[in-house]
């Protein structure tokens, strides 16, 4: 498989602040490439450089074999950007929105009409041609936001958190659209705060932290990085009396999270400390209902590698 996108030693500075730090990566044709990172990790900055919205300070970006600094028009024509923040005109109908943006890519006349209809159909807004986005739900606006980026049939679609703040139904619709676009031959770069989404649809994932890629691979490869920790989830009746500090003192325990009816503990794999943990919980008068040892998930991988949660 050939590379659709290659990034070499990419750096972006805002004044003295380094937002993207000597980043290199390759996205292959047909991939859904996940970009995982906490707030401010540098995901949007990287994406903005790929889509020519920002100039890079150093390094190069190669799209379909051409350096985008030298063939900006070619690169722009082959990319579709779904911006993190909604970018649509509220005073233009859904149809006019898609048609206007597609027109910027040189589509005209019958072809423009056809592609506009197709894009709206694709995101499930086929019956909303004449509707104004100001009357749309959050999910519908997000879908229109996507339609505006795909009507010109780009080779590479970059989606910057396309599912922020929407209902589960729209989210499923969008995730399915992403898969469908991928089936149709589009390569996709997908950033999200939602670990489950990335885990569900991405074929390869890069974890970004402080402008650097700290891990990269399929989810299996990423999970394999952390053979040395385990997650213990303990269901309890009430979390009111649970004290976190004594739990953290138990040998091997790396982190403790208390949620509703649940205590989640990340611990070194080789230490057998389940007895101590349970004893402590009983001391805190917890009524234990279940104990589960979890296989590591991406959340744990992320936490282990970056030392912080994806969503704070």
């Amino acid at each position: 498989m050939s590379n659709v996108l290659e990034i070499r030693n990419l750096t972006k500075k805002f004044g003295d602040f380094i937002a993207v730090d000597n980043m290199s990566l390759a996205v292959r044709e047909g991939e859904i490439f996940g970009f995982l990172g906490a707030n401010g990790a540098g995901k949007s900055t990287t994406i903005n450089m790929i889509s020519s919205l920002l100039r890079n300070t150093k390094g190069e970006i190669i799209l379909l074999g051409k350096n985008i600094a030298k063939s900006a028009k070619f690169a722009k024509s082959n990319i579709g950007v779904v911006p993190q923040d909604l970018a649509i005109y509220e005073d233009m109908t859904a149809y006019e929105n898609v048609s206007f943006f597609a027109g910027l890519y040189g589509l005209r006349g019958a072809q423009l009409k056809e592609r506009t209809v197709e894009a709206l159909e694709f995101v499930g807004l086929g019956d909303k041609h004449k509707a104004y986005p100001k009357n749309f739900s959050g999910g519908m606006k997000r879908r229109l936001n996507i339609a505006c980026a795909i009507a010109h049939r780009p080779k590479l679609i970059i989606m910057d958190e396309p599912t922020v703040g929407i209902d589960p139904q729209s989210r499923n619709y969008i995730l399915n659209s992403v898969r469908k676009l991928n089936d149709m031959g589009c390569t996709i770069i997908y950033t999200s705060h939602y670990m489950e989404e990335v885990e569900e649809i991405c074929t390869r994932i890069a974890i970004v932290d402080h402008g650097k890629i700290i891990a990269e691979g399929t989810k299996e490869q990423l999970k394999a990085i952390i053979t040395d920790t385990k997650d213990i989830w303990i269901g309890i009746k009430s979390e009111d009396e649970i004290k976190v500090e004594p739990l953290k003192q138990i040998p091997g325990v790396a982190s403790v999270r208390v949620e509703e009816h649940m205590v989640m503990i990340n611990s070194k794999a080789e230490v057998n400390n389940l007895n101590l943990i349970i004893q402590q919980l009983i001391r805190d008068r917890a009524e234990i209902r279940s104990v589960e040892e979890q296989a590591p998930n991406l959340e744990t991988v992320f936490l282990t590698l970056t030392g912080r949660n994806l969503r704070d």
Partner: peptide, 13 residues
């Protein structure tokens, strides 16, 4: 302010 400047700048225009 509508973020559409992003799309305009990302388009081959």
């Amino acid at each position: 302010s509508r973020n559409t400047a992003i799309r305009l700048s990302a388009a081959p225009v």
